[in-house]
Structures are given as C-alpha cells and as structure tokens.
Design a protein around this nucleic acid. Structure first.
Lengths: 351, 351
DNA sequence: CTGAAAGCGCTAACAC
DNA sequence: GTGTTAGCGCTTTCAG
C-alpha cells in the first residue's frame, strides 16, 4: 500500500507538499502540482482516511442511527424512503455508517469510536439516556424525530403528527364517528403523544372528548396490534373507529376486528399511518396519513452537511413537515345499527 | 476526549497494560485488570478506532458496495431484503459502510481510503475495471453476484438464474408457448446472460430454438421496459410470452403491451423476476421467479466474517441458491386465435 | 505479567 | 511556495 511518504520520495518533494496537492491547497506551484499528481497516478496512491482522521479529526463519515431492528428498518418501506433521501442529499460527500438496534443501545459509541463527523438519528425514544451527552458534546447531529415538546437545542426534521391526527378526526367526525380508539404507538416516542394530542384537540373542536380508556400504547409495526385492538374493543361502549400508529398496525387491527366478527369499514373504520406502499394494496385499501419520508431524510442530511461545514456552532433549526390524509376504503360512514346498539349499551351501563 | 494515555496515567500503569485490558488480553493480573477497568468506567474512555486501525490495520467495518443508485437500491424491495440479511448476519460484529453508485465508480477506494476489513459487493458488472485489482489485493470480499462463468477465484453467493429460467420455460411450454421473448437485463451483468442461457437450454429440451431477435438487453428496473417490449413485439412473428429481468420491468412490459392493444395474459403471457412484493399486488398478479434475497445477503455476510477471521487465506467458496417459480395470473394458455394469426404471418414471411 | 520505544500515515504549526 | 517538526491514539515489537 503506497503511502504519502512514498509519493513524496519518488516525486522528490516533501510530504507536506504531497499533502497539499492531495487536498487541493492552492499554494503549490503548477509544475510541482503536476509532477506530484503524476506520481500519485502512477503509484495509484490513495490517502488513508484513518490516518487523516486521526491527524485532523475529520472522517468524511456520517453515522446513521436508527433505534429499530434491521428487520423493521428494511421491512417497512418508510425507512427505505428516508435512507434514500439521506443518501441522495449526502451525494457522496459523506459516507454512511449505519447503526441499527433496538433498545437503549449506546449509539454514542459511533461517535466515540469511529469518530464520525456527524449523526442522523431516527426513531429515538424521548428517554434515551444518550441524549443529554450527545447534545452536550457538540457533535453535529440531526434528528428525524422530536424528543420532547420543549426540546429546542436539537436540530430536527419531523412530520406534524398532531396535525395529521386532527385531519383524521375531521374525516371521521364527518362520517359520524364520535367514539374513537387510538393505537398510539410506543409510549417512549414523542410522535405517539403528538398523535394522541392531535386526536384530543381535534375532538375538542367538535365538542367531543377523547375517552382515555380507548388509547393504547404499544410497539411499532408488529406483534401488539391484534392484542391492543381487541383490548380496546373490549372496553365498555367500544369505538366505531380506530386510528393506528402505522399501516402494519392497521392491518393487524383489521385482522383482529375480523376475528371479533366486525366488518371493516361497515362496522368499524380503521385509519393507518404513513401511507406506506402497503396502504393502497391492502384489502380494504387503507385510509392513511401520509408523510414524506424521502423528504424527511433529505432535509435532515442537508442540514447535517450545513452543520458540519459551519465553523461556528449554528443555532438549532427545527422543521415541521406537513402530513396529509389519504382517504381510501377502510373508513366509512358509521353504521346506524351499531350506533344504536352502542347507545343502548351506554344507557345500560349508565343505569 | 479521554485517551488511553489518560487512563494509563490515572490508573498508574503503562499504556500497553491498558491496551491489554481493552483487548481482553489474558496476560493481565486480575487486580490490575480490575483497577484499569474501573478507571475506564469512571473516565468513560472509548477506544479510537481510527488510531487502532492505523496501528493494526483492522477497522471493524465492512464495506457494502452496490452498483446502483440509491433510488434503485431503496426503491426496489429486493435490496432491502439483502441488506436486512447482511445486517442481521453481521450481528454488530462489523459496522456497515454503505457505498452506492451506478457505473464504473472506483469502489476500491472504500478499501484504500477507509481501510475496511472486507467488502460485500452486489450487482457488479462483469467488465468492472476494479475487479482484477480487488481479487489480487487479497482483501476479503464476497459477491452476491457472479462475474463470469469461469470465475473461481471469488467468493460468491448467487441465485441460479439459469435454473429459474428453465423452470419458466417448462411452465410456458406447458401452456403452449413456443415463441418467447426475453427482456434479459443489463448486458454487463452475468445474471442476464445466465437467464438467456437458461431460456435457450430450456427450449432445447423441448426441441425448440430461441430466436435471438427476441432477446433484448437493457437496464434494470426503470425506463427501458416499455421500449424494449415494443421492440420485441415489432419483430416478425412476435412472441406469445415475455420473460422479464425483474418485476418492475414486467410491469412496464405489461403497460407497453396494453398500449399495443394486447391483453395480458390472454394475448401475451408475461413473467416477472424476483417475486418482489410488487408481484402479488400488481394487476394481473405476476407470475415471477422467486429469489431469497434475505438469505443471499445473510450467507454473504456470514462468509465475510469467516474470511476476516481466518488467519490463512481461505479457498474461495461459491454458493448457488435455488430459484423457484411462483405462478400467478400474468401467464396463461396461449391464445388459439393469435397462434393461428402468428402461423399465418410465418407462412406469409416464409413465402 | 509489565513496560519502553518505535511507528502506523497523515496534517498542523511554524519556519524558511 | 516549500520543508521541518511534532504529534493525533493506538499497537507492535522486544526487553525485562
């Protein structure tokens, strides 16, 4: 493996001069530059990024931290979109060091150990123990999620989940729904709470109140959907509509509803989330809240490049992305028969 | 950032001793080990992988090279599956450095510059100029594709495209098809040629011959599908069935056939490839050749770990993965009316 | 079992 | 414009 020293020796110049040529330092005589460049070609010299990084503290590498298993990340189409956005925005200016893992893993090690230039963090729980240390460290980092309502120190790009939820409520209330259940998502994710907040405020606008017994928190994507849906439907005066934290969850909820003998959407309306590629092809096609994951990733990456390029620390920048409701066939006007039945149940319970 | 030197100073031992503790070298007195470990905890010391890599030439990082744009990689479900397989098999023993890019990019730089411990390479063209240098370098690397029929120096894991194609032929011939067109895929990919070889040999088994005018090479996934399908259908005595290099290509071909006034599968049968998540949900659902991309990635990663762990150079290992035909609704018995029409055309041309 | 010295390949700071 | 010196944080000899 030819080193800078070898090039210097062959070209008959100092190592520093070679270094200057490699780094496009203008203070090199054209003749010298050319000679050095030729030797570099001939010897097929490539700078050792480890040595460079060790010497100057930069590695040309961005760490991508996703607090999910590889199975979830690559299994659910949304992350692929975000990663695609990141990759394109980075445009080969930074290589990507991917770090996946679920739970409270010490991802700060990515920085500590690999000395990445910056981090993009996705799906980070609010109570993540690394958070404070990370923000204090001054390492450029951008989140594609929010961490807490008042977190103003961090750079983030995040969809406006509350607004998405309010749009869902507008839609459902227009269809006559008043009892609405929420499979909110993981309790430790800010987005889950925003979703519930949006539902609550949306209902309030119509003089309705969210029955907190119809709100369930649970994991993303897999496993808990059926159980939670059944739990909610087992409450007194069960809801006529279910709002889910993602499309997979919605699919599971629909499955559970079928097992309970309900028809979707005739008996119960179900709303998915993310408008993933699943949504249009599922039967029934899912009404879902669309987020632009590609753009989310791209904006985060662009911001990271800015932060890394900046000489002075930049003030944090926070971007709220709009969400929009895509209406398909998993939601429908509330079933009169069931509504009456529910009303009777309430009367009975109330007596 | 606390360094090994700091730890050594505080613990009152030499740097080498700290190094031994960090690297689990057994030749350390238990008391010393414990003291050092405690100081490491207290000071929150993390080894600098750059420095370590510079000193010993190992980086705990695997380069993942995919010769496609990020758009293709994350847009087509198959790569996500492979990446998921890789990530899980690597099991955090190696970090993943992702390098995407289409064309003859100098991906050897990943090795040269980042000094990765090994490479997993996907979708590499046979005429890749880096190939020889890469194989000569002795860097552990595993391909999830073949490079040439006689390439025995490389480690690879690849589906048996020829066998997949033969299964397709069995299916199509059973349905009465004898004139079969192939949208083979990129000319520079070995898989494309294997696909055509399988078709040719498959037909031969039935005493049929592949009309080479009905074979077209083109890019993967996007763009060329419609044009190529139309080109093939414009040949004298056009085929009654089209075999495509991927499911997206099949979708495009079907689109083009509709534009030409053909019905699928009544007039022309179309076979997709990969059995991606697209296949079952497209209208008509695609008959497609299934490959287990997850397993392909997982096996490649496992092999890479072996190669890296090995002290002596290991003999290359080559794994051919089975493919299976999933029959859906885009293929059907050949249309008698058209068959007669084609026969007339042949008669006319022949006269 | 432990330590001292040298060096991995590069760049920063300062000469000239 | 160019060269010299020192050192980034670690591991590898090789001694003890």
């Amino acid at each position: 493996m030819t080193s800078l020293r070898d090039v210097a020796r062959v070209a008959g110049v100092s190592m520093k001069t070679v270094s200057r040529v490699v780094n496009n330092d203008p203070k090199v005589a054209p003749a010298t530059r050319q000679r050095v460049q030729q030797v570099i070609e001939e010897m097929n010299y490539r700078p050792n990024l480890l040595a460079r990084g060790l010497a100057n503290g930069k590695t040309s590498t961005a760490g991508i931290v996703i607090n999910l298993t590889a199975d979830d990340v690559f299994g659910y189409p949304l992350f692929s979109d975000s990663l695609r956005g990141i990759a394109e925005a980075l445009n080969n200016r930074l290589d990507m060091l991917l770090h996946l893992g679920h739970g409270k893993f010490p991802y700060l090690d990515l920085f500590h150990r690999h000395r990445v230039d910056g981090l993009i963090l996705m799906n980070i729980p609010m109570d993540d123990p690394n958070l404070r240390g990370l923000l204090d460290s001054g390492l450029p980092c951008v989140f594609t999620c929010r961490l807490a309502a008042d977190e103003t120190r961090a750079n983030w790009v995040d969809p406006d989940f509350a607004s998405g939820a309010e749009q869902v409520i507008d839609h459902l209330v227009a269809l006559g729904h008043t009892r609405i259940g929420v499979l909110a998502g993981p309790n430790h994710l800010f987005s889950a709470h925003e979703r519930v907040r949006g539902v609550r405020e949306g209902l309030k606008r119509y003089g309705l109140e969210l029955d907190e017994r119809l709100v369930c928190y649970g994991e993303l994507f897999t496993g808990s959907g059926r159980r939670l849906a059944k739990h909610i439907m087992a409450q007194p005066d069960p809801p006529t509509a279910l709002i889910c934290s993602d499309d997979l969850m919605a699919c599971e909820a629909i499955y559970a509803l079928h097992e309970l003998g309900y028809d979707v959407p005739d008996d119960v309306s179900v709303v998915g989330w993310d408008d993933s590629s699943l949504a249009p092809v599922f039967r029934p096609p899912l009404t879902s809240v669309r987020q632009d994951a590609y753009q989310k990733g791209a904006l985060a990456a662009k911001r990271l490049l800015q932060l890394i390029a900046a000489t002075d620390p930049e003030p944090p920048q926070q971007t709220l992305l709009p969400m929009s409701l895509i209406i398909r066939e998993s939601t429908a006007r509330v079933n009169q028969r069931r509504e009456n039945y529910s009303a009777q149940q309430v009367a009975k319970t109330g007596s």
